[in-house]
Computed example of a mutant assay.
Amino acid sequence: MQFISRAQWGARPSRYKLTYIADTRGVKVHYEGTYVPPSLAAPDAHGQCAARVRAIQASHLADDDEDYSDIAYNLLVCPHGAVFEGRGAHRRTGANGTATLNSQHYAVCALLGSAGLTEPTPAQLAGLRDAIEYLRSEGDAGAEIKGHRDGHPTACPGGPLYRWVQQGAPRPGDGTGPGPGFAPFPGAEFFKRSPNSPLVTAMGRRLVAEGVAVYSVGPGPQWTEIDRRSYSRWQQRLGYRGADADGWPGRASWDALKVPKV
């Protein structure tokens, strides 16, 4: 685990003394719920992550309505898989919605948005598992892994990340991906470059097989608006809504589609 302490990321002191908590039922997973630039996930962008964590803490400390003691989360995980110490283990979170909910589960936040960067990277999913296991070993967290929306009226942690939670929060590479013979996710930017590729044809055929395609002719190798509309229907089939069903493939929905290798 790549653990980044409060001192290492430059945390400000807590406003009030943090409440000790002996143990919890488990961990709840969160996201930022705002726009996060896709560029934050670039391999050379990790240097920006500590500044983003500092900005989250600053916004929480400035929130007079919530009157937070500190950054609300126990741990935060960036797209590169690093685990940033927030309130830390054995400290009650301020993120789950009510004092009761805050006492029942720790809170781990992915640096992931409701727009922009909405799909967790494999490194981020691995880091979230690291964070959960850290809170189990160092904070006596129980076995439960839930989303913020479980027990509180919110969209957090967003469709893609919540689906991962519902799958049991698997660590990438543990056998829960699409499996041998299936095409790995080529990345969201692949589709936004309007590719002409046999992979687009293979994807379209799978959408036809799933009964969600809206092609009048095709599918073919050129990515078009019809492909995006068809893929949006696939995302809706998986339970995604709003910006999470925008028709641009993401890793979780792609793996679920099981596109054959070409």
Results as ranks from 00 to 15, higher is better:
residue 122 P to H: 04
residue 123 A to E: 15
residue 124 Q to F: 05
residue 124 Q to N: 09
residue 124 Q to E: 15
residue 125 L to S: 08
residue 125 L to Q: 08
residue 125 L to G: 05
residue 125 L to A: 10
residue 126 A to L: 04
residue 126 A to E: 14
residue 128 L to E: 07
residue 129 R to G: 06
residue 132 I to L: 07
residue 132 I to W: 02
residue 132 I to E: 01
residue 133 E to V: 06
residue 133 E to K: 02
residue 134 Y to E: 00
residue 135 L to I: 08
residue 135 L to K: 01
residue 136 R to G: 07
residue 136 R to V: 01
residue 137 S to K: 09
residue 137 S to D: 08
residue 138 E to I: 00
residue 138 E to T: 02
residue 138 E to P: 00
residue 139 G to K: 08
residue 139 G to P: 03
residue 141 A to T: 09
residue 143 A to Y: 04
residue 144 E to F: 06
residue 146 K to D: 11
residue 147 G to C: 12
residue 147 G to F: 04
residue 149 R to G: 05
residue 149 R to Y: 12
residue 151 G to M: 12
residue 152 H to V: 13
residue 154 T to E: 05
residue 155 A to C: 01
residue 155 A to N: 11
residue 155 A to P: 04
residue 156 C to P: 01
residue 156 C to Y: 06
residue 156 C to H: 10
residue 157 P to R: 08
residue 157 P to K: 10
residue 159 G to S: 15
residue 160 P to N: 11
residue 160 P to T: 08
residue 162 Y to L: 15
residue 162 Y to G: 13
residue 164 W to K: 05
residue 165 V to M: 12
residue 167 Q to I: 01
residue 169 A to G: 11
residue 169 A to I: 09
residue 169 A to F: 05
residue 170 P to H: 12
residue 172 P to G: 07
residue 174 D to I: 02
residue 174 D to P: 01
residue 174 D to G: 05
residue 174 D to R: 07
residue 174 D to N: 13
residue 175 G to A: 07
residue 178 P to M: 04
residue 178 P to V: 03
residue 180 P to A: 07
residue 180 P to K: 07
residue 181 G to D: 09
residue 183 A to C: 07
residue 185 F to E: 03
residue 186 P to Y: 05
residue 187 G to M: 06
residue 187 G to P: 11
residue 189 E to H: 12
residue 189 E to A: 15
residue 190 F to H: 14
residue 190 F to I: 08
residue 191 F to H: 04
residue 192 K to L: 15
residue 193 R to M: 11
residue 194 S to Q: 15
residue 195 P to E: 13
residue 197 S to G: 12
residue 197 S to R: 14
residue 201 T to F: 14
residue 202 A to I: 05
residue 203 M to S: 07
residue 203 M to K: 03
residue 206 R to W: 03
residue 208 V to N: 09
residue 209 A to G: 11
residue 209 A to Q: 14
residue 211 G to M: 04
residue 212 V to W: 01
residue 215 Y to F: 15
residue 215 Y to K: 05
residue 218 G to P: 03
residue 218 G to M: 04
residue 219 P to M: 07
residue 219 P to L: 03
residue 221 P to E: 12
residue 221 P to A: 14
residue 225 E to Y: 00
residue 226 I to M: 01
residue 227 D to R: 01
residue 227 D to I: 00
